[in-house]
Computed example of a mutant assay.
Amino acid sequence: MKLKHLFLSCVIGWSASVFSQNIEQSPQTSGNPVFPGWYADPEGAVFEGEYWIYPTYSAAYTDQIYMDAFSSKDLVNWTKHPKVLSKENISWLWRALWAPAVIHANDKYYFYFGANDIQNNNEPGGIGVAVADNPAGPFKDVLGKPLIDKIVNGAQPIDQFVFKDDDGQYYMYYGGWGHCNMVKMGADLTSIVPFEDGTIYKEVTPENYVEGPFMLKRNGKYYFMWSEGGWTGPDYCVAYAIADSPFGPFKRVGKILEPDENVARGAGHHSLFKGPGKDEWYIIYHRRPIGETDGNYRVTCIDRMYFDKDGYIKPVKMTFEGVTASPLK
């Protein structure tokens, strides 16, 4: 019996050792894409101690009439929340529900979206806003019409991003067709108000801008990011500028996310997560798998993003592994 116990003890100890080595050699990761399905234009946010991703449902424009959301406590395990926003709750939507921006303020969740892909100022559509009591919705349109429904300064009203500055003021950056505007949000976050000089729209378009604006403030500097190239082509990418003001001027620094023929093409339209670490950043973006030619075949991915000692963003390396778990504190 003693020999039997000794043998079992050795086997168990050996198995535990091998298991431990496997864990150390192959840590659990999110994998890329982080969840199945064709999804693009991901908006990342942290709500109630969880990471949230709100992407565009990537399909033909007439089928893009709802949006799902995904939540995770650790960046690795994701839960799907179907149809957090859909046509049933937007009276003026008929197609092309795009590129969400979601914030928490005034004890509510505000969901900004682009809809209908308007081509001129006589078509109904533009940027709308829906509201819910929790991040999983259901979100309901609160205006019964778009918040921004005209093409101003050449900017198609799509791809909005809402940024809160340190003084509590919210700004919206938006625009397609190679032009970017910014507007000042009213306290109710369902209206826009004039700037101090009386203007409503300020064009802040940087060099090579196409669409997909994003703003980050870090160490007193404003990092303005955007997508370049064509969203259906292989040259889609992300570039950035650094400024001392949310108004710019935004002088282009360079690219931070580009296609990689060993991984994917069409990488762009991103957002960021701030992890629990002091300078822990993640880039959430979409990309097109190698071999896929349909413009709507896009998947949502996450990779680490780093700053160098001088405050510049290092080029992001796209991976299939994704990121390791990082629960929020």
Rank of each mutant, 00 (worst) to 15 (best):
F47D: 00
V34D: 00
W52I: 01
K150H: 08
L143H: 06
A101V: 10
P27E: 04
W92R: 14
I65P: 01
S15F: 15
V34S: 10
E123A: 15
Y109K: 04
Y66Q: 06
P138S: 00
W94G: 12
E24V: 14
K150C: 03
Y112D: 14
Y39V: 11
T62Q: 09
E43F: 12
P138L: 01
N116F: 05
G114L: 08
V84T: 02
A155S: 01
Q28A: 15
I53M: 09
W52G: 03
K87Y: 01
I127Q: 01
S20F: 14
Q119D: 12
V142K: 13
P124W: 03
G154C: 08
S15L: 15
L147N: 00
A16C: 11
S58Q: 04
G44C: 12
S58R: 11
W78P: 05
P55N: 00
W98S: 00
S20D: 12
S17G: 15
Y57E: 08
K73A: 08
Q119N: 12
K140A: 07
N32A: 09
G44K: 06
S20V: 11
L147C: 01
G37D: 11
S58H: 13
L85I: 03
G128L: 11
P146V: 05
A40G: 08
D68L: 03
N22Q: 13
G49M: 08
W38T: 14
Y109T: 05
N77F: 04
S71A: 07
E123Y: 13
N153D: 14
K73P: 05
V131T: 08
Q25G: 01
F113W: 10
A132K: 07
Q25R: 10
V11E: 13
G137Q: 06
N134K: 11
P27L: 13
K83G: 06
N22K: 12
E88I: 01
G44M: 08
W14M: 15
F47W: 05
I151Q: 04
P36S: 11
K80D: 02
